[in-house]
Design a protein around this nucleic acid. Structure first.
Length: 234
DNA sequence: AACGGACGCAACCGCATAACT
DNA sequence: AAGTTATGCGGTTGCGTCCGT
């Protein structure tokens, strides 16, 4: 077959508009189909991702609020790296976003922890050495999200961990540690995060409520479609 | 003002699973 | 029931921007 060269990399505004309009017409399901007929030289996968992570009208943009942060932490402690599941509890946030946030957060925490754990290291100036590299591979991997087996956390970061956990100290475990210390500050119970009502606040957007509810609420789309619809016919 | 490193985000990849034929 | 295709998910990477030196 004559494979059309697939486009990769960042999306252009025109592509976005085109995608939005086609999703408006055909719904956010048949991605391969949309990818084909739209003439975007993108894979269905790519289209879906773009829609879910960027174009979806219900998306919140900008910084995570403290409540969201807390919720992420809490849910992660319960569910681990189930990003999509966690994302469903945060209206307007995507799994990708949460995943990115978590990585960033872990990086910070790991740094702080390392600093705290090694006061005798007395090297405030060594901050540029930032974090541990895997002693064997030389790769930095401390914030790996919990893949068992990779010894990603340097021993300096987990001074209190039992050595018997040689098969891998997951991010869950690390985070539990961190949580404990945070809770000491907040005196809050792990699950009683401060915004339990969020699950219900999402009723206007589809992506984030679908745990039990179905997408009937997925209202045939938003003003942008009207605008985009025009361009579809061009 | 220039440079280098850290950070944050968007996008891709590979795998698992659901849906369909 | 088996094979194929589409979709969803988690992990990883690339790159632009920010910030400190």
């Amino acid at each position: 077959m004559v494979e059309q060269e697939m486009r990769k990399g960042p999306w252009t505004e025109q592509e976005d508009i085109k995608l939005m309009s086609f999703v408006g017409f055909f719904g956010d399901r048949r991605w391969d189909f949309i990818a084909k007929i739209s003439g975007l030289h993108r894979t269905g996968k790519s289209c879906r991702l773009r829609w879910v992570n960027y174009l979806h009208p219900g998306l919140k943009r900008g910084k995570m609020t403290p409540q969201e942060e807390r919720l992420v932490l809490d849910l992660h402690s319960k569910w681990g790296n189930r990003w999509s599941r966690i994302a469903r509890k945060l209206p307007g946030r995507t799994d990708n976003e949460i995943k990115n946030y978590w990585r960033t957060h872990m990086r910070k925490m790991a740094q702080e922890k390392k600093r705290a754990a090694a006061p005798n290291n007395l090297s405030p100036s060594s901050s540029s050495a930032s974090f541990s590299k895997n002693s064997t591979t030389g790769e930095e991997s401390f914030y790996d999200t919990g893949g068992p087996g990779d010894n990603m956390i340097s021993s300096t970061e987990i001074p209190m961990i039992g050595q018997d956990q040689e098969e891998g100290y997951s991010m869950d475990d690390i985070w539990k540690d961190i949580e404990v210390s945070e809770e000491n500050n907040n005196s809050e119970e792990g699950c009683n995060f401060s915004c339990p009502s969020w699950e219900y606040s999402a009723t206007s957007d589809s992506l984030w409520v679908m745990d039990e509810e179905e997408s009937q609420i997925f209202d045939p789309f938003f003003p942008c479609y009207e605008q985009a619809g025009a361009s579809l016919l061009l």
